[in-house]
Design a binder for these strands. Structure first.
Lengths: 234, 234
DNA sequence: TCTAAAACCTAACGAATTGTAACAAGCACG
DNA sequence: CGTGCTTGTTACAATTCGTTAGGTTTTAGA
């Protein structure tokens, strides 16, 4: 496993720097924080960040110019975090080279999610996308494989994957049969619905569920199914 | 790609479809609009959009499932446009493969700007080159050779090269048999299509795929094939 | 609590789809 | 012509996945 991605934070408010750096480090990034553009630019001579978070309202420099230079010369991923919420601000920010534009006040977890999206797209070597973790299992949807907690893998079919995906997208929520039907039917979907049962039955087998007492996929008599278990997509 | 980028719009509100398609066409895109997921999926069998705008609250289908499938099988840029403004919705949407998440009500010009950012970043695959790198392999199309990561070479035939090139030009995209017939057998090739299976089978052998569990060329039962793996043309 | 109907589970079957070995036709080269 | 290579065709094996059928579980109602 390679080094952790480096995220730089440029914001004049210490509060925000603190929140961001803590959240990002918890999420598995290295961070460097700066309160002034001058310090940031000085640091750029020795490090090359993977992602740059930039506040537009800086005391000592015009943020947009900096963004433009960063995107153009460094080829870095630049995400603007700004209090200026006007559409025109966002449009020009994006046109000048920013990869994203997040408005204050922001939620740290969304910042993390957006950073991950950009990294996922820019670094194709990172094969960790489209996988979900739950209850000791790891589902690799890109190669249709279910990985054990010991590392052993089973493959699942496309149809099984669709069901699993639906469950993992809405964990701990009731999923009605009707909701599932539109996954298969495709056409007029008149065919009788035992098909869904069978898909779930097959999925349960692969998840090594005890038929008498399933732990992950619970049946709610007369209503649908519910997937228990904490899911993390990563 | 000399043609204008194709943007698909999937939203159940006609108003929004109209606004988006007009703005986007003014901005220099081709558009196709759909009110229902089913129609959209039907259209996907014949066209491959560059960008997909998807509203999460669809009448006939769960939007998130669709987003995940799109990101996984179409390899297109997926942008969610949703009325659901919860942070958790945005985070899971992004984790499931969306490239951006725009909240309603939105400003059309921002949508355009965000689409442009994504297109700008997705570097067009340079078809002019004759060598491609993927998963430890190097394909030399000029001399019909497939190079190992240790430098050992195998040759491949013209027909095998056609299929390989097709895959490498559209990695992570579902390619249906019909599309293959069009692009390859282009002529009056009436003969029925087991030929394609055999080509792929032979290609798999040369790529040393495990027959039970191929990692690069995946079969989607009833739909087609997907080439997984990051491709770089040089 | 008991009983019957409804809902659900799943083994087994089979149609459709896909994989591939073996064969044969076509072609280049000597 | 014979040899070797490419490539479509055929035949059969394997896989996928909906359907069927019979059994089990759950619920409602007496």
């Amino acid at each position: 496993m390679s080094e952790l991605p480096l995220v730089t934070i440029l914001d004049d408010e210490p509060e925000i720097r603190k929140i961001l750096s803590e959240t990002l480090e918890d999420a598995g990034f290295r961070t460097m924080s700066f309160g002034r553009a001058r310090e940031f630019e000085a640091a750029l001579r020795t490090v090359t960040p993977d992602v740059c978070l930039v506040d537009l309202s800086l005391p000592d420099k015009d943020g947009l110019t900096l963004v433009h230079r960063l995107a153009l010369e460094q080829g870095a991923i630049v995400i603007i975090i700004s209090g200026r919420a006007q559409v025109q601000d966002r449009v020009t920010g994006l046109e000048l080279g920013a990869d994203d534009y997040i408005i204050k006040p922001f939620d740290p977890s969304e910042v993390v999610a957006r950073i991950r999206v950009r990294l996922r797209k820019s670094k194709p070597t990172d094969t960790t996308s489209n996988t979900a973790h739950f209850a000791g299992w790891t589902a690799h949807f890109d190669r249709y494989a279910l990985e054990d907690d010991t590392g052993r893998e089973t493959t699942f079919s496309h149809a099984e994957g669709e069901v699993l995906r639906l469950f993992l997208q809405s964990p701990k929520r009731l999923i009605s049969r009707a909701q599932m039907q539109d996954m298969l039917g495709g056409g007029a979907g008149e065919s009788f619905d035992r098909a869904m049962d069978v898909r779930i039955s097959r999925l349960r087998t692969k998840l090594r569920e005890d038929p008498k007492n399933p732990q992950l996929i619970k049946t709610i008599y007369g209503a649908g199914y519910i997937f228990l278990g904490d899911v993390g997509w990563r």
